[in-house]
Computed example of a mutant assay.
Amino acid sequence: MYTNAILKNNGKKGKTMARIGIIEDDKMLNQALKIALQKGGFAASCAYDCKEAVQMLNNGENLDLLLIDVTLPDGNGIRLYEEILRNGIKELPAIFLTARDEEREMLEAFDAGADDYVVKPFQMKVLLKRIEAVLRRTDKDKVFIFDDLEVWPEKRRVFRGGEEIMLTAREYNLLEFFAKNQGQVLTREMILESVWGIDGQFVEENTVSVTIGRLRRKIGDQKVQKALIKNVFGLGYRFGE
């Protein structure tokens, strides 16, 4: 099951939360958004107009998504976003916030590259879900997250509780196969075919169970109350439920 915030790896040991840039001139709403994001597991940076937004980006803020009010005191949020994209930040997703439910403005925002459009007033919980959905769609480094276990297919790296776990190639392939088939019962034959390939027909009877046991020890699955890898009696194994 995914956590309530998208996690991004920072290239070092451990992890950092996705950072959201808030560009909203209503100070009360701006702070309410910041608090809601932080409670939801995100980091947040705030700007109150176009000038501050540009400064925020020029200061090297490593942002993963922008929340942009369409009507700002020193300009239009849609024009601001177009300028941001023209100036080299090609892949910074944005959700626009507005008090006006106008089709023309909504279409203009999507034409500018908006990933979503939210009309005020809105429920914070709904906005958080929209943020999660956008980040999942736009994140190039796809990551499987199950409680505090992270599997990074692009980097072939695994973390649990922020600590990297060193696996053999076979153990990693097995874990990734489990992660990509969360909730499904996987038989020994399916595992052999997908993880061992043509070599599967030559392995010993207990190879799968031995490798799974070794994997469970390495990821600390035997030390937690709710194990991720479960035996399904007489059938095989199920992961993540």
Results as ranks from 00 to 15, higher is better:
15 K>L: 14
1 M>K: 04
3 T>A: 07
16 T>Q: 14
31 Q>K: 15
18 A>F: 04
13 K>Q: 10
22 I>D: 02
12 K>C: 11
27 K>F: 09
11 G>F: 05
29 L>N: 11
22 I>G: 02
1 M>T: 10
15 K>H: 09
24 E>I: 03
20 I>E: 06
14 G>S: 04
13 K>T: 11
30 N>A: 13
20 I>A: 03
16 T>R: 11
18 A>C: 13
11 G>C: 09
21 G>H: 00
17 M>I: 09
5 A>Q: 03
6 I>L: 04
21 G>V: 02
25 D>K: 00
25 D>M: 00
27 K>L: 13
9 N>T: 10
26 D>L: 06
21 G>P: 01
24 E>P: 03
19 R>D: 07
23 I>K: 01
16 T>N: 12
1 M>L: 09
20 I>S: 02
15 K>Y: 13
28 M>Y: 14
31 Q>I: 14
13 K>S: 12
31 Q>A: 14
24 E>M: 04
11 G>P: 08
2 Y>V: 09
22 I>Y: 01
30 N>M: 14
1 M>C: 05
9 N>I: 08
2 Y>T: 11
21 G>Q: 00
9 N>H: 15
5 A>T: 07
6 I>H: 00
17 M>C: 12
16 T>Y: 09
28 M>C: 13
27 K>V: 12
8 K>T: 03
12 K>S: 10
19 R>A: 05
2 Y>D: 12
20 I>V: 11
5 A>L: 03
30 N>P: 11
31 Q>W: 13
4 N>V: 11
22 I>R: 02
7 L>F: 03
12 K>H: 10
10 N>V: 07
29 L>W: 13
10 N>M: 07
6 I>M: 03
2 Y>I: 10
